[in-house]
Design a protein around this nucleic acid. Structure first.
Lengths: 135, 135
DNA sequence: TACTATTTGTTCGTATGTATA
DNA sequence: GTATACATACGAACAAATAGT
């Protein structure tokens, strides 16, 4: 599989598809470092900006996590805590704003779940570490 | 409030904060079109790339939606459908991959909630149109 | 229909800053 | 201290979608 600059889809989307497949197929194992942006750009004969956009897509999907000066790694699945919902409790999932991401130290591409209890109290849960059950 | 190119925070992050405040304060009403990228760039004396990154932040937070050739609008809150969870049903929120976003016709910044029922059947719900309750 | 203007999307080039190894 | 790698920023050019004429 390769990348066609004259294809219908944008180069960075084609690259995102390639990398996503390598991740989901287990070709790129959890915790593994992806090749550097410059390395990938050379490898496929594309610009670094296209590589950056492709990696940004995967980050927004929660598949990888990037650390400046280190590189981009495939995100590890983590243990999930169970949260029970009563029939008068309400749970809504959404993306956090920047301030919430900072406070919860969330990676990009990780939603939050806002739980409103019967008494009006609210809880904010990290979606990557939580699963919800009825009560 | 203005933007300081020599500030600690990146220009695009400062702009994202400004625009987010205008949205959350009701200064930019739901459904309203934002000024064009070039217009905003001129207004603040910054490059278009910084504007695009700022708008990308707001999209990833589910606050705005962009249509090529038209512009960027503040997203409208929509009616939510109720989904009940039994004590053996399991719900997990995450970001969709590209293929899922296409199939569900999802805006950027909208998570999905994967519900696994007791019998093993799974459902994929749009987080922006769903709220979850215990049963 | 056809055309034009506007707006966002994509790509490349270049440069500098900052964090990590 | 040096090298590597990602972050930010600007400019430029062209493509593609939309809206209005």
């Amino acid at each position: 599989m390769s990348i066609d600059p004259r294809g219908d889809r944008a180069v960075y989307r084609q690259l995102a598809d390639l990398l996503r497949e390598q991740i989901q197929s287990g070709d790129l194992l959890s915790g593994r470092l992806l090749p550097s942006e410059n390395r990938i750009a050379q490898q496929y004969g594309i610009g670094r900006e296209a590589v950056r956009q492709a990696v940004a897509v995967l980050r927004s999907e929660g598949l990888v996590s990037t650390v400046r000066g280190e590189g981009t790694r495939v995100r590890q699945p983590v243990e999930r805590e169970s949260v029970r919902l009563g029939r008068t409790d309400r749970a809504v999932a959404r993306m956090p704003v920047e301030s919430e991401r900072r406070e919860l130290d969330l990676d990009e591409g990780v939603p939050v779940v806002e739980v409103t209890r019967a008494d009006g109290a609210t809880e904010l849960h990290r979606a990557d570490r939580t699963e919800f059950f009825g009560r």
